[in-house]
Amino acid sequence: MYCRGPEGTVLTKRLTAELAPSDSIGSSRLGGLWRLCGWGLAVAAVLVLVPEVRAQQKVIIEPTRVPYQSVEAPPSPLLEVLLFYAVAGSTVFGALAVCFTKNIVRMAVWLLVTLVSVAMLYFLLAANFIAAVQLIVYAGGTLILLIFGVMLTSKSPWVKFEPSKVEVVYAAAVCGLLVAVLAFILTATIWPPAQEQLDATTVADLGRSLMTTYVVPFEVAGVLLMIVMVGAAHLARQEKQSP
């Protein structure tokens, strides 16, 4: 927006020059036959794998099935059920809106909706600290960074790079299949019965565990952050070296 310039400036010419050859990449490099073969393989794999998973479930989970089934899951409190469906609904809606929005800033706003809903899911799961960290790090940090990135790299509004319709259909098919298979497997699996109503995990428990059992991942994460900091500074400094 702010870097919008009149058409025909150097920037625009360069953009169109860069973009022209890349328009045809999607269709020419990968022949239709090969693509069909790939799809066939994928469908075949799914068709083979799903019965396999079902069979394995029968083999492995069947023996332990009896004690699991004997315990009837207690009905959750009405408030929890209502809240869960409201929050899960907004999570899913936000995620789908991220998929189907074209404007990148609106995508980021829908991502904010999703992230905050996920934080509420964590509250429902009695993970208060994770929820608060999700709010700070994701909603407050990462999202701001993303929007900042959008602002710095905002394109001219007349340059559109969007995928072809075919590509979208393929992607929707793959992801729909993926979600359907996952949902099928998840609902078919017999999970251990839910525990009693638990208190929220205290921060002290988490901290103790981080400092004893998980001290190595904790330190590695710290080192990683250090490396990332140096790396980000290096990436940002490139500007000065180039003329």
Binding site: A73, V81, F84, M107, G149, F161, A183, T187, T189, A194
Partner: peptide
């Protein structure tokens, strides 16, 4: 009327699918 593991996992699965779809269809790096 009972919220269990399955419900949360299904929500996560939908999120995952949406994420993959976004990664496939968007051309903008961000």
């Amino acid at each position: 009327m009972s919220i269990g593991l399955t419900e949360y996992l299904v929500v996560a699965a939908v999120l995952f699918g949406a994420g993959i779809f976004t990664m496939i269809t968007k051309r903008n790096a961000i």
